[in-house]
Structures are given as C-alpha cells and as structure tokens.
Design a protein around this nucleic acid. Sequence first.
RNA 1: GCUCCCAUCGUCUAGAGGCCUAGGACACAGCCCUCUCAAGGCUGGUACGAGGGUUCGAAUCCCUCUGGGAGCGCCA
Length: 466
Amino acid sequence: MSNDVRTRFAPSPTGLLHIGGVRTALFCWLYARRHGGTFILRVEDTDRERSTPAAVQVILDGMEWLGLHADEGPFYQTERYPRYREVIRQWLAEGKAYHCYCSKDELEAMRNAQLARKEKPRYDGRCRARTGPVEGVTPVVRFRNPLEGAVIVDDAVHGKVVFQNAELDDLIIERSDGNPTYNFCVVVDDYDMKITHVIRGDDHLNNTPRQMNMLRAMGVEPPVYAHLPMILGPDGTKLSKRHGAVSVLHYREEGYLPEALLNYLARLGWSYGDQEIFSLEEMTRLFDIKDVNKSASAINPDKLAWINQQHLMKLSPARIAVELCWQLERLGVDASKGPALEPIVEAQRERSKTLKEMAQASRFFFEAPAAYDEKAARKNLNAETRPLLEQARAVLAELGDWSAPAIHAAIQALAEQSGAGLGKVAQPLRVAVSGGGVSPPIDRTLAILGREETLARVDRALAYAG
RNA sequence: GCUCCCAUCGUCUAGAGGCCUAGGACACAGCCCUCUCAAGGCUGGUACGAGGGUUCGAAUCCCUCUGGGAGCGCCA
C-alpha cells in the first residue's frame, strides 16, 4: 500500500458548500483514508470580490459536521501570493510566460471576429513576440502554451482524453492588478503541496490540459486526475438554489445524519455491487476510483430519506439521542424535563425518516397535548368509547409493575374480557396520551410516559369525552 | 459556433461479448403481519436513445445520428 497519496479538496468560498462539493470532498477524503494518505483542505479565495469570510466559515462548519477532517490545512490562496509572484517572475525570466499589453476592447474585438468566423474564441498570441512595453499600459502575464502537439489526460474515471495544444491558448496567469488567476494558482499549489491525486468535478476536465502544461513548465509530471460526474437536481437539471443547492448544514436542520448524507452521496456515482447501506468505515475500506461511473446523476430525496432511516435504525440509541435532543431544542422542547431519550429513540426510529420527524412525533412525551386531533378524538374519545377507557384507567392505576410487558398484558386482558379487541382499548388511550392517532406501540408509549403522567392525561381525556 | 464529456427501469445503479427471457435499491401498486403509524416479508409493472457495422453471438466493441452536459473570462 502506497503511503504517499495526497488529495485535496479545494472549494472556493464564493457560494455555499452544497451537495456537489461535499461529494467531491468525500471522495477525496475516502481515497486518502483508504490509502493511508493525506487529505488537504485548500480554500481557493483568489476572487477577492466574491469571497467572503462568512462563506469560508460555512465551509469549515460543514466539513466539521460531516466529520471530514483535513490532515493539512486549511490553506488559503490569498496567503500565498508571494509564492505565486515568485513563480511568475521566474517564468518571465525563462520565457515560459510573457507580458501582454492587449486592452480589453482589443480582446473583445478579437473574440467577436472569431465568433463571426465560427471559430472557438481564444487569444491569438499577438504579444508573444513583443519586445518592449507599451506606454501607459499595465500588462497582464500570459503563460506560453505549447503551439503544437497534444496533451493526453489519462483520467482515472474517464480514461484517456486527448486535447490538441492548438485548441488551447495562452491563458492569463497574472491580472493587470497584479493578482494571480485560478488555473495558475491551482498548479502552483498542487505542485507545492505534492498532490498525487486530483479528484474534482468533471467541469474541470477542460482545464486539465492547461494545468498539465503549466505543471510541466514547473518541471514535474502531472498527478493522477479523476474527474467526477456532476450531481443534478431531482428534476435532472443543474443544481440550483431552487432544489439541491443548499448548504450542507441545511440537511442537519432537516434532520439528516452525516453518516446518511455521506452514504447517500457516495452512492451517487459510486457503487459496490448491490450494497446500499455503508458505514463510513465500510466506505473507506471499499472505496475505489475505478468503481466510480462517468455519467451525471440526479438527487433523489426519497432515497436519501430512506438511507437516513436505515442509519437511524442502525446507530446506537445514545448517539441518536444526542441528535434528537438538538432537534427537540429547535422545537422549543426542554428535553431535560421528561422521560429519558434513549427509549424514545428505540421506540421511534423505525417510524421516522428524519430526526426532525422524530422530534415532532416525540413532542408529546414532554408536553401533554394542548388539543386533540379532531378526527381521532371524534372517533376515540366519545360517549361510546368512554366506558372502556375508564376501565383501562382503573386497570392501569392498579398495575403493580409499570413496564411495557406488564402494560401490554393488562391491556390485552381487558380487551379479551370485554370482547372489544385490542384496538378498541389501545386507540382511545393513544389519543388520550398523544393527542393523535399515531404513536409507537401503546405499551411502550405508556411505559415511557410513566404512570403518573399517563393517568393524568387519561383523566383529562375522560373529561373531554364527557 | 468550436473543443471536450456523457447515454441501462421515473430515479440511483449492477452489468467489463455468451451466466441477461437484463439483477438490486428508492418510489409506486397489491397482499401478509398488525393496537395506530411504521418497520419487516412476499408479489407486480416499467429500462439497454436510434441506425449502421464487427462477431457464430452485443446492453457490453467500432462508426454515424439524436439527446443531455461542461468549457471557450483580467470567475473559480
């Protein structure tokens, strides 16, 4: 096993950290972990106008919540400007780069002319051979891209992709304001950070030949590239604020577990036979880039919810309890006063897709129903059902052992002896204690709620039933 | 417009020439279980974009088309 694998996740803090970015981060992280390598976080903030500290913090918070911890970093490109200038000065001296004095208007005219000729717009290299500066013009610096030959990207997911150098142009690496540009910074960073595997979205595939040419100008052979397919919204179109493009932290608020989100995201583009549910440990053991597919995939909220539930049912009640507590607080429920959370988790997890749902459905354990569900009350808390509910109350009040099995036996006995059936006894009790027609099995529900609280609520229901 | 990428059920995917009358999962429908809701079990429907090749044989290889997507910035 090679121990020198180094991957990096390089988000730009110009938007929010969404699903697509998280999946990229996950694959970088998994690959590094799988090979005992190093995972690096690098913030690409060279766009000084759009990058904000708040956006950086959102990325950091998101990574923290997901548990995708970086072994090195976060590094910030804005802190590396001296290094970029150093490389540019060197390239200028070596003739690998040159000053370009073309004005924006001139470039615009060039572009329009090319478009009119149905050509791909690109810089024609007119300043390549210029020997002296132009009065009053602050130049940009361009990389001298090879004119001939081809660049072959041997992509780990796409296979060999060939680009003709003739299709590429001399890209700007330093703006007229002296700031370096993205493609150049990436190259210097990947070189300095000794990145061995560049795993990123396939929207970068077209940038790769340029970066490879610059890497070679630095004197090294490029790393392994792996371009991941895009993630689309539920409707199969590009992710936008309307559907999938929300901050990862939004998923926390909606009650998803990081384990589940990561599991779901891993299965978007990656597979291991027919297996659907993976723990993080399993994923790191099983993940391989060769099992990543090439086509874009759409987010499926239903499946994410299902996977979330699978994890809710699998993880330890103690772990889930912590998350449930957080959700209850968000609902304004004080979970410190009331029954223990772990039994509630065990009673609720197979009937909750999310922690948010679980919290909502568990609210009644902490607060007596303020009102009864109209339909459920009409059917179960009326003059007709009242006698049986009264008997149930009496039986429960006399019960020696307040445990689920004992409660079950008592209710069962009452049902048999009255000939009404278990539902006729359980359902009125359910409405009485929970306020509605849905709850975990009545015996477990009452056991969790406690005798005192149960009887008090039944009394209130009896009063309501008249 | 040019360059590059992609193409199996509604969705996520298995499939690396014969094991495919195409398998699994989500969702959906029905049934079973059942004190509600779930969970679970069983059953069912729906897919290899089109056309040409190669081959004894193609979802799998090649070509064309079609349809999606990305890039072509002094954005990242």
